[in-house]
Simulated assay, not measured.
Amino acid sequence: MEEDYLHISSIQHFVFCKRQWAILYLEDQWQENFLTAEGRVIHERAHDNNLKESRKDYFVIRSMPIKSHTYKLTGECDIVEFIKDENGINIKEKKDKYIIYPVEYKRGNIKKDESDKMQLLAQCISLEEMFVTKIRKGAIYYNKTRKREEINFTEEDINNFKNIVEEMHRIYKQKKNPKVRISKKCKSCSVNEICMPNLSNKEDVVNYINRRLDL
């Protein structure tokens, strides 16, 4: 059932912080800050279907819906480039062969964790399934640096992706919000005021009263 499918963009949140992901996708709570607002504007530009690109050797599709039935994922790519290549695949209504190259747009700089990388890999794997081909690289465009960072994926990356998605589905099915793991990134988290990390791991009122009554 497709209501059990996870959104591909949620992978980035899960890798960043499992509790943030749970607040957003299990509890359906959202709180926008400057960083999320800036990111939304950047994605709106990338998804602008009025910006059309088609040249002799490639064409571009924006806001492309994608899906993986194997991993129960759904979402869309900011940009998918189809680059003419004799080793590529046939594309409907095109006489040439093309290789597929997804590009994800992000605000800020390259992250130290693998949150953006795993989201891009999820796009590659979904596109692989849809077009029955092998896609082992793509790019992330960072608005702060105005540069693309190309990523080549390894088997280790793919195994890591599988483990992440498996854990996401398990937690989603259990509907159990993971505990807080306080770190520096809590300060910039868009759901910090909802999560309240400095309080969340402390004893709740009910347990406190019960413990006192048992004395």
Rank of each mutant, 00 (worst) to 15 (best):
K147Y: 14
V80W: 03
P65D: 09
N90E: 13
Y105W: 15
D116S: 13
K147S: 13
K72Y: 05
K111H: 12
S126K: 01
V80M: 03
E128F: 04
S54M: 14
I83F: 01
N143K: 13
I89L: 07
I151M: 04
V60N: 04
P65K: 12
R148K: 15
G138F: 05
K144T: 10
K106N: 05
N90P: 08
L127G: 03
R55Y: 15
K117I: 06
N90F: 10
N87Q: 14
D116E: 11
K72D: 01
S68P: 04
Y142S: 01
D48A: 12
I110G: 12
L73Q: 00
Y98Q: 06
I83Q: 06
E53A: 08
N90R: 14
I99H: 04
R45N: 14
K52M: 09
I100W: 03
K162P: 04
L120H: 02
R136D: 14
A46D: 05
R107A: 11
A122V: 06
D113Y: 09
E129G: 06
Q119G: 04
K137C: 12
R55W: 15
K67I: 12
L127Y: 03
I79L: 11
N152Y: 11
E104C: 03
C77P: 00
G108H: 07
E86M: 08
K134Y: 10
P102S: 03
M64N: 13
M118Q: 07
Q119A: 06
E76F: 10
K95S: 14
I91T: 04
N109I: 13
K112C: 11
K84M: 08
I125K: 01
N90T: 12
E155F: 10
Y105Q: 05
L121G: 00
D85V: 03
E104S: 09
M130Y: 07
R148P: 02
K111N: 11
V103F: 01
G75E: 00
Y105M: 11
K84I: 07
I151T: 03
K92L: 14
G108V: 05
E86H: 08
N49S: 12
G138N: 02
E76K: 15
I91Q: 04
R107Y: 11
Y101N: 03
K97W: 01
K67C: 10
I83C: 05
F59T: 01
L121A: 03
E149M: 14
F82K: 01
E150H: 09
M64S: 09
P102G: 02
R136C: 10
F82S: 00
H69E: 15
Q123T: 10
K111I: 05
G138W: 00
D96V: 08
H69Q: 13
G108T: 04
I89G: 01
E155K: 11
N50Y: 11
K112E: 14
I125C: 03
K144Q: 15
L121H: 00
N143G: 14
I89T: 06
A139I: 05
E93I: 07
E104D: 14
E149T: 11
E81F: 10
I61W: 04
